[in-house]
């Protein structure tokens, strides 16, 4: 159902662009949100409403991801110039994600965030080994990654 709603949203965007006759990025984006609003009013039924939950969550998730990347870069600048106290560690992280696609997306996201690098994923896809630059506490670190990235990602994909 989500797929067909997404396709009809794209169709509405195209119709908006054809009707106004202006082919620019801003107009495409505006048409997309206009179509989203129209579909939000028109659609009835509880099973169809999932699409209207996914799109804002996805936009928020991409925003937090970009913010994390920028924070990581400024942290690197600060660290390499003023050489802080380092506390590196390799941590075993239990995975909730099951399929290959979910795991690879999660590993990419973890590798881009501040101070972490994925070393390897075990062959039976149960745990992931992460190298951390600043480790305060193991449990709180695992909980932070779970609440920040994994739960949101799984909610969007599944």
């Amino acid at each position: 159902m989500t797929k067909s709603l997404f396709l009809s949203n794209l169709m509405l965007t195209l119709i908006w662009v054809l009707a106004t006759g202006v082919l620019t990025e801003e107009n495409l984006l505006f048409g997309f949100f206009l179509g989203f609003g129209v579909l939000w009013i028109v659609t009835t039924g509880k099973t169809d409403r999932k699409y209207f939950y996914i799109v804002p969550t996805l936009i928020g998730f991409i925003g937090t991801l970009l913010w994390e990347i920028i924070k990581a870069n400024f942290m690197t600048v600060k660290e390499s110039i003023f050489q802080d106290q380092l506390e590196p560690a390799i941590i075993k992280y239990p995975l909730k994600a099951k399929t290959d696609g979910e795991i690879s997306l999660l590993a990419n996201i973890v590798a881009l965030t501040p101070g972490t690098v994925v070393i390897d994923i075990s062959d039976d896809k149960k745990v992931m080994f992460i190298h951390v630059m600043h480790l305060k506490d193991k449990e709180s670190f695992i909980k932070e990654i779970q609440t920040k990235f994994e739960n949101k990602l799984l909610k969007i994909i599944r």
Partner: peptide
Amino acid sequence: SSSIGILRKPDVYLRINITGKASTL
């Protein structure tokens, strides 16, 4: 900053960490 970091960090994993972060952005 990431090239200063690659010179000053003490082991391989920290260096990989540094290059992956700063060079992308």
